[in-house]
Simulated assay, not measured.
Amino acid sequence: MKLKYTGKTKDVYALEDGNYLLQFKDDVTGTNGVFDPGANEVGLTVEGAGRAGLRVTKFFFETLKEKGIPTHYIDADIDKKTMTVKPAEVFGEGLEVICRYRAVGSFLRRYGMYAKEGQPLDAFVEVTLKDDERGDPPISEDALAMLGILSKDEYRVLKELTQQIGNVVKEELAKKEIELYDIKFEFGRTGADNQIVLIDEISGGNMRAYQNDAYIEPLELEKRFL
C-alpha cells in the first residue's frame, strides 16, 4: 500500500491490484470550530466522525449500486474505517458539485438580496473549483468547457447524475423524517470509455440535513439515520 494523497478528511492509498483505499479520518471541515460542509479547511476533529461517515457512505453507495447508478465504490470495512474504490481521474484539479434544495450556506451569502433563508430550491446544481487559495469559486457550464475542464456533454451527464443521486439521498433521509437541505458530491472519469462516476463519499460531513427545522450534526445524523 502506497500513500498517494493526504486529504482533509481522508487519506488515499494505492493498492497493488490498481484499486485505491480511502482511509477515513475524524477530521471535518469548518471554520472557527464550527462544522461547515462548504468550508475548505479542517475546522475540528470529532471522535467517531470517520466511522460514522463511512457507515452512511457505505449505505448510500450500496443503494446506488442496486439502482444501477455508476460510482467508484467496491467495498468498505467499517472497523478499519476504509473503503476500496476503483481508480478515477478527477476533472481538472477537482470539482465539487452541490445539489441544493433550500437556500442556506454560501448560496444565501451570495444571493441574499433575492433569496430568503430556507427558501425551497428545485435541486439547484452548482459547480465549484477545488481551489483553496481562491475560496473554491463557482464556475459556469460555459467556463468549464472553454477552460477544457469538461465538455458540455459531460456537464449534462454531471448535472443529471447530481440531481439523480441527490434525490436518492433526499428520499432515503425522508424515510426517517430527515430533510436534506443541500449535499456536495465529487465525480471522476473511469475505465477505457471515461465513464463519469460518483467518487469520494456521501456522508453527514458533506450535507446539511435538518429535522423539525433543527440542523443535525454529522455524527448525530448517522445515529438517527442508521
Rank of each mutant, 00 (worst) to 15 (best):
Lys2Val: 11
Lys4Gln: 15
Lys4Ile: 13
Tyr5Val: 02
Tyr13Ile: 00
Tyr13Pro: 00
Ala14Leu: 12
Ala14Tyr: 07
Glu16Tyr: 08
Asp17Leu: 02
Asp17Val: 03
Gly18Leu: 10
Gly18Val: 02
Leu21His: 00
Leu22Gly: 03
Leu22Asn: 05
Gln23Asn: 10
Lys25Gly: 08
Asp26Leu: 11
Gly30Gln: 01
Thr31Cys: 09
Asn32Leu: 13
Gly33Pro: 06
Phe35His: 10
Pro37Lys: 03
Val46Ala: 13
Gly48Asp: 14
Gly50Pro: 01
Ala52Phe: 03
Leu54His: 00
Val56Glu: 13
Lys58Phe: 11
Lys58Val: 11
Phe60Thr: 09
Phe60Ile: 14
Phe61Gly: 10
Leu64Ser: 14
Leu64Ile: 13
Gly68Ser: 02
Ile69Leu: 08
Ile69Asp: 04
Thr71Asn: 13
Tyr73Thr: 02
Tyr73Leu: 05
Asp75Trp: 12
Ala76Asn: 05
Ala76Met: 05
Asp77Trp: 04
Lys81Val: 08
Met83Val: 10
Thr84Ala: 05
Thr84Asp: 03
Val85Phe: 08
Lys86Met: 11
Pro87Met: 00
Glu89Asp: 15
Glu93Met: 08
Glu93Pro: 01
Gly94Cys: 02
Leu95Ile: 03
Leu95Glu: 04
Ile98His: 08
Ile98Cys: 09
Ile98Val: 14
Cys99Met: 11
Arg109Thr: 11
Arg109Gln: 08
Arg109Met: 11
Arg110His: 06
Tyr111Glu: 12
Tyr111Cys: 12
Tyr111Asn: 08
Gly112Cys: 04
Gly112Phe: 12
Gly112Pro: 03
Lys116Cys: 06
Glu117Tyr: 08
Gln119Leu: 10
Gln119Asp: 04
Leu121Glu: 15
Asp122Lys: 14
Asp122Pro: 07
Asp122Leu: 12
Ala123Trp: 09
Phe124Asn: 07
Val125Leu: 01
Leu129Trp: 05
Leu129Ser: 02
Lys130Leu: 00
Lys130Gln: 00
Arg134Ala: 12
Arg134Phe: 06
Arg134Val: 00
Gly135Asp: 03
Gly135Lys: 03
Pro138Tyr: 09
Glu141Met: 12
Asp142Met: 12
Leu144Gln: 00
Ala145Gly: 05
Met146Glu: 08
Leu147Asn: 10
Ile149His: 01
Leu150Asn: 00
Ser151Ile: 05
Asp153Met: 01
Arg156Thr: 10
Val157Leu: 15
Leu158Trp: 04
Leu158Gln: 10
Lys159Val: 12
Lys159Leu: 07
Glu160His: 15
Ile165Gln: 06
Gly166Thr: 06
Gly166His: 01
Val168Arg: 14
Glu171Cys: 05
Glu171Thr: 14
Ala174Trp: 03
Lys175Pro: 00
Glu177Ser: 14
Leu180Glu: 03
Leu180Thr: 10
Asp182Phe: 11
Lys184Phe: 02
Lys184Thr: 08
Lys184Met: 01
Asn194Pro: 00
Gln195Ser: 14
Gln195Ile: 05
Ile196Glu: 06
Leu198Trp: 10
Ile202Thr: 07
Ser203Trp: 04
Ser203Met: 05
Gly205Tyr: 05
Met207Tyr: 07
Arg208Asp: 09
Arg208Asn: 15
Arg208Lys: 14
Ala209Gly: 13
Tyr210Asn: 04
Asp213Arg: 13
Tyr215Ile: 12
Tyr215Phe: 14
Ile216Lys: 06
Ile216Glu: 04
Glu217Tyr: 15
Pro218Ser: 07
Leu219Ser: 02
Leu219Glu: 03
Glu220Asp: 13
Glu220Ser: 15
Glu220Val: 09
Glu220Gly: 13
Leu221His: 03
Lys223His: 09
